[in-house]
Design a protein around this nucleic acid. Structure first.
Lengths: 216, 216
DNA sequence: CGTAAACCTGACCATATGGTCAGAAACCGT
DNA sequence: ACGGTTTCTGACCATATGGTCAGGTTTACG
């Protein structure tokens, strides 16, 4: 076996362990917040001795930073469906679906992200200022085009985006509240469908992106 | 001076101090989360020695509990505008205005509330199950009536409520992100107006509560 | 095998933090 | 001015937690 293969297998091993730790960390950070999370809790969740965490991540903050960065990348990628769409109904509809799927499958990550931003984005302020700002401007341009082409009403694109973020992330960030109001049980498939349908119906109708408003 | 007057002045004094502490605590909890907040930080923020806090609130958790309870009551009261309204456009419009005002004036409180719920509502689970559940059911009934009377489209009332909460609270909970995307400055009056207008336009149009969709 | 590198871990340490307490200070009616 | 009550506070303590480290174990490969 040559050097490349060896390094590859080693780094593979390392990546697996790191992923294992990151997954546990994400969960614990989501449940307890950065301040409430302890390395011991994360270690237990990952079934590793605490000292081992420090072999892979020098400090709690480094571990947290990695978790947040990963989430952010994941979050941004959900917007791929946005640009290639021919119409606002299609693009925004697909974006809502994608973000709702993230809210459902990656609630922990969403919570960590929300927590980070709520507390002033101490670790991803840079990313926020560069990548997120750029991303947002691009999407605003797309929406403006749709408006100019008469495909939707003249809505403030920025606030429309905020509305999309808010509404979809709500189902992850406030999942506990939603579960409580759902009799203490998580939403089932039908309820998630109802949520997606309701959101799309209200927003797409609201921005005038549907041929005719549903009269059901 | 009689006994009643004396007790009144004392309790007045006590309430003032408690309010002072609670205000500082709300700010610190919002900025740092429960785990990241320290009694020392709160004490500094309130310009009091740490030991004094423990004279008024026995434990950090008791102080936190009080903060959260206060916010919740404040939050619920915003819905008074909801019921007395004659139409969905009026009721929901006023509700959006009220909640946006809270988001603007009491961002810290909103963040504490969001944080509490996100971490599984460890201290207000009871209230959530009783008061919030009841409140929600009542509002759902009101919305259902509007639908039955043909004043708006047939929208799932529960998800409409979630959308209202999500969208309005977003401006408080993610105020940092919004500021960052606003060039690092808080939204000015015009921007807040634009936000309120956009939200109302999309949602009220989206649920078919406006006579005719704006064609501006 | 041998050995060097990577990986793992129990035991340990320094510090930060929630909370206590004895006693000082301020308040208040008489 | 006095005594009792409430309010305040510096000094202190026990504990939890992030982080370290010396030494052990495993892996990779000639």
């Amino acid at each position: 076996m040559d050097l490349a293969a060896k390094q590859s297998r080693q780094s593979e091993r390392r990546q697996e362990r790191e992923a294992q730790i990151l997954k546990a960390a994400e969960k614990v950070f989501a449940e307890a917040g950065f301040g409430g999370a302890t390395m011991q809790l994360i270690a237990d969740m990952a079934n590793l001795p605490k000292a081992n965490l420090h072999y892979y991540f020098p400090t709690k903050e480094a571990l947290y930073r990695q978790v947040v960065q990963n989430i952010f990348q994941f979050w941004l990628r959900a917007a791929d469906v946005f640009d290639s769409a021919a119409s606002p109904a299609e693009g925004i509809g697909a974006y809502i679906d994608a973000k709702m799927e993230i809210s459902r499958r990656h609630a922990a990550g969403s919570k960590v992200w929300a927590s980070e931003v709520m507390h002033g984005a101490p670790v991803i302020q840079d990313t926020l200022e560069s990548e997120l700002a750029e991303w947002t401007e691009d999407r605003i341009k797309v929406i403006r085009q749709w408006i100019d082409q008469g495909m939707m009403n003249d809505i403030n694109p920025r606030h429309l985006l905020y509305m999309l973020w808010a509404t979809t992330q709500h189902y992850a960030d406030f999942s506990h509240q939603i579960e409580t109001l759902n009799g203490g049980k998580p939403l089932d498939n039908a309820a998630w469908e109802a949520a997606k349908t309701s959101i799309k119906q209200i927003i797409l109708t609201g921005i005038g992106a549907l041929p005719s408003p549903p009269e059901t």
